[in-house]
């Protein structure tokens, strides 16, 4: 079994997703069966194969260094669940 309780907790923490114990149980089961299933890829020899990241064969397009300020802070903050004095705001962070 690749995914145990510790592992699921670790990846849930990395993903910043809170799971209740029922969900954890379910996901341990699901993830293990998915990982077992994808392991069939090990049947293929990929020793000299280049990984494919993007299908596009063209070159990275680059833009000119022109600055345009077209968005007001109101527009940027419009959908914010919480904003104060032109800032987004979140619970206090202690560094």
């Amino acid at each position: 079994m690749k995914i145990d309780k510790n592992t699921i907790n670790k990846i849930a923490r990395l993903s910043r997703i809170k799971l209740d114990s029922k969900e954890s149980e379910d996901y341990i089961k699901d993830l293990n069966s998915i990982l077992d299933w994808v392991e069939q890829l090990n049947e293929i020899n990929t020793d000299n194969v280049e990984p494919l990241t993007n299908i596009s064969s063209s070159v990275l397009p680059k833009r000119d260094d022109i600055s345009e300020d077209i968005h007001s802070s109101e527009e940027i903050l419009k959908n914010a669940p919480e904003k104060i004095e032109g800032f987004f705001s979140v619970p206090k962070v202690v560094e």
């Binding site: 022109i66 968005h71 802070s73 032109g86």
Partner: peptide
Amino acid sequence: SSSTKFGSLPNSQVSL
């Protein structure tokens, strides 16, 4: 393409 200017009003140089 938003500006890199320093010291403007908060969230005033933010693109989508």
